[in-house]
């Protein structure tokens, strides 16, 4: 579905050259939820912007449905972008337009007649559970409601892919959970391929099928979320899974992971364990593991 081949992106300011993305190759399959995780400054936002060419890679190729976007003309690129929705950390809604009008925007771009536009927008409002806010303006919405609107807007043109750039990072835990559930629903119901950029392991762990761990513009490791989560090989992955860097912390990490595997398929209990460990930053001494 999406193939990145040796993508490199350099930014040059006056006397410095910064390599934000360094020779990254990725293959994202149709219908999956793919996570790209890393600390801030790792280059993940730049990488995701290379997918729809909001950033033009310095080197490398981007393929979308077997078409090379990096060599596409402007018109082709715009058509491709209409098949790739994108949502952002700061929502980026049009502030002078109501929720309904925001959702209509991409359809106006496509020159869909007004009646059809409104009908389609109403369908989407229902999908994201925002019907009663149709005529509200973004300034009156909560963060979660803004992101729901943004999701509806991104889905208006029936895209194949949804790019999420830190889509839950500005939200509280409850809103985060409901947005992630919504993304999962969209993935299952509509078969939309989703790419999620995040610095929170929790986000990736909750809905992603596969994950790539990024730091310094490079992919440190990638694979099934379960694999990476249970057996992190790179330093970055270990730091992300359990923020405490010292030995004791890593031991706690092992316990924590084991508990999660051993727990039955009970999301609520698992979440409790997660919360508990994270809140208390619990340390285990050698030998006390499994206690």
């Amino acid at each position: 579905m999406i193939r990145l081949e040796h993508i490199t992106k350099e930014f040059s300011s006056k006397n410095k050259k910064i390599t934000a993305v360094n020779d990254v190759s990725l293959h994202i399959k149709k219908g999956e939820i793919y996570g790209i995780i890393g600390f801030s400054g790792a280059g993940k936002s730049t990488l995701v912007r290379c997918i729809n060419l909001l950033e033009i890679p310095t080197a490398g190729r981007v393929y979308f449905e077997n078409k090379e976007l990096t060599s596409a003309g402007e018109k082709e690129l715009r058509t491709a972008r209409q098949k790739m929705g994108m949502i952002f950390q700061q929502f980026n809604l049009l502030e002078q337009r109501s929720v309904l009008e925001n959702i209509c925007y991409p359809l106006e771009i496509e020159k869909m007649p007004k009646k059809e536009r409104t009908a389609r927008a109403k369908e989407l409002l229902e999908l994201v559970d925002m019907e009663e806010k149709a005529n509200a303006y973004p300034s009156r919405l909560s963060g979660g409601q803004k992101q729901r609107t943004a999701i509806a807007r991104a889905l208006a043109t029936n895209p194949e892919v949804l790019l999420c750039d830190e889509a839950t990072s500005a939200l509280d835990p409850i809103a985060t959970r409901s947005i992630l559930a919504l993304l999962k629903k969209i993935n299952e119901m509509l078969g939309v391929t989703i790419i999620i950029i995040s610095h929170e392991m929790q986000v990736v762990e909750q809905i992603c099928d596969r994950v790539a761990v990024m730091s310094n513009g490079m992919i440190q490791e990638s694979g099934e979320v379960k694999e990476v989560f249970l057996n992190p090989k790179s330093k970055t992955a270990r730091q992300l899974i359990l923020p405490d860097k010292d030995e004791a912390g890593l031991d706690a990490g092992r316990v924590y992971r084991q508990m999660l595997i051993e727990l039955p398929e009970d999301e609520e209990k698992k979440n409790l364990v997660r919360e508990f460990f994270r809140r208390n930053k619990i340390y285990f001494k050698e030998g006390e593991n499994g206690a």
Binding site: N52, L54, Q90, E95, T157
Partner: peptide, 11 residues
């Protein structure tokens, strides 16, 4: 960001 969003929608 809003301009970027508009670009991402193929405007």
């Amino acid at each position: 960001g809003v301009i970027e969003a508009a670009m991402s929608m193929g405007s």
